[in-house]
Amino acid sequence: MAATDQRNEVFARIREALRVPAPHRHAAPAHDAAPAPNDGPPASDAFRAWLPAVGPSLNDQLVMFAFNCNQLRTELRTLASLDEAAAQLALLARENNWRQIASHRHPLVLPLAEKLALPTLLTDDGYAIPDLERCHAAITGCDALVAQTGSILVSSGSAGGRALSVLPPHHVVIAQRSQLVPDLAAALALARERYAPNWPSFLSFITGPSRTGDIERILVLGAHGPKQLTVLIVP
């Protein structure tokens, strides 16, 4: 027998429980810019004053993104042209001995991936999981790069589905300089503008190659997802 949904009962219990209000535990904040209690939660642009600082200019943000990539062990290459990007990709392919790759139909990404002239699986029209698992690298686009955290925002649309950016052992992201945003709030706002209300079923902030510290809290890269993450920034 299937279990029956307890929606009404649970909601009734919640409403009953909330009849007595809870105190706001925090005294008035010391700072003027902070919200006063009972004023409702603070707006997300207020977070900026408290989270790690991000410089105002694009150059500051590029420097910060590069600094974070370095700490996270994301390889970052800033390139002057698409040709340079193609050369960089070819170099990566040689160094890491890629024999088959995966990508998706993306106006910026696909032409570059095709220049490698390797057998290429495109995920756009569906794929068999074992085929994708065999690929040595995935080359994808993204929605945004986040300076504050060194993250890459991807979605089902911008990165060729859910699995392409996590199953192959090496993930290469191609991004334009203009895709760099200062912080997470800006990245979420950008996603909202681009998608709402038809949100994709998948959105992810990728912050460095897959990692674990589960054995003696020692950092190991490449736990279940990619062992290597490369970001190529093109003009």
Partner: peptide, 12 residues
């Protein structure tokens, strides 16, 4: 500073 993957799922 941030966990490696922070993923949002909004449907099948």
């Amino acid at each position: 500073p941030l966990t490696c993957y922070n993923t949002l799922y909004g449907g099948p």
